[in-house]
Design a protein around this nucleic acid. Sequence first.
DNA 1: GATCCATTTGAAGGGGAATTCAAAAACGCA
DNA 2: TGCGTTTTTGAATTCCCCTTCAAATGGATC
Lengths: 201, 201
Amino acid sequence: MAQRKSRSDRRIDLIEAARRAIIRHGIDGVQLSHVAEEAGLTSGAVLYHYPDLSELLVEAQHAGMERFYEQRLRRLADFTDPVEKLVVTIRSGLPTGPLDPDVRLLNELGGAAGRNRVYGVLLTSLYDRQVSMYQAILDTGAALGVFRLSADSLTIARNLVALEDAYGYRITARHPVIDPAEAAELILSYARAATGNDLSH
Amino acid sequence: MAQRKSRSDRRIDLIEAARRAIIRHGIDGVQLSHVAEEAGLTSGAVLYHYPDLSELLVEAQHAGMERFYEQRLRRLADFTDPVEKLVVTIRSGLPTGPLDPDVRLLNELGGAAGRNRVYGVLLTSLYDRQVSMYQAILDTGAALGVFRLSADSLTIARNLVALEDAYGYRITARHPVIDPAEAAELILSYARAATGNDLSH
DNA sequence: GATCCATTTGAAGGGGAATTCAAAAACGCA
DNA sequence: TGCGTTTTTGAATTCCCCTTCAAATGGATC
């Protein structure tokens, strides 16, 4: 019998297990038994904690998004120079490779968000927060005279997040040429034009 | 009994039916019965033509992609001025709204492409062709002296397609602010900076 | 170490979807 | 009209997954 755990510990385990199961089988292909297997439990045990599988899936997506966003904020906090901040943030928005679990999970939402309002809201809020994150960097750089923005910061920030998203898809789809390094260069090309800064340091 | 049709006619019908079913239920959620219902047939009849549902789904995705791409080329052919070509192409890459079936279908592939090599190849090949399409426009404009490119045309073309992709997701996810018109403006903002042309006419 | 409660198992059921296939229907052609 | 072929149906079968629930297990508490 699997190790017995407290209610809250087990729920955390299950959210993690659901995350892995979604990545493996797709948000519309996950089954109760997949989650159970990932968690090392039986279907009944999963159901004991989450009588409705779809609620667990939403929680898993939510948790994955939060973790992704928090991680970006944390990396960003290590720097003060706007140029460094911008470069680091661009890199932290891209997957480490085709198998990057955080980005794989987010990508699962893309299609589902068009069908499921909850997923749409989740994804939209993540996008908006990431835009704000970039906007703050851009505004600070502009105020310090480091950046000379070619358009308003909101527009540039939206485009930067959009580029990250799109290259995340290309990388997880295993584009033969566009790997994480190449994607970073492509986004930096835009960032240079948009900030009037060559972004080297 | 449903009208009897020739083998090839029925296969075309089924591909269309599968396309609609995928949009409605997701690439991992489609069932044989969904396709049958969309086609006005019974499951048995679908199976008679496509013993393997997954093959039909791949064909549906392939056909949808081809149609999307061909349509873009056709609209592009109506113009000769590089500025007009660029603007029209940017618009033709965006969904008409949250329910746009062509983009909804493509978005379904995003997550699946990370799990399924066939879908990954399909999506990658579409991306590359769209990049070539933009690159031709950019190179022509540069040769005519209309565009003064801020980076090599391949980089700009890749970014333009990436932006389209990403805003397609935002729009189908019903972002409250980013509608097709706003997305076009955002992409145009980048296109202006990248071409050194204000793109008005 | 006995009791109690929360957690987990495993088997049994119910339901729904895929698959198979014989029969029926529609069409082409003589 | 009648015949042969192709396409479609509909029912039977099988398979798989969700759901339920009684029993077992593990840990905490006294």
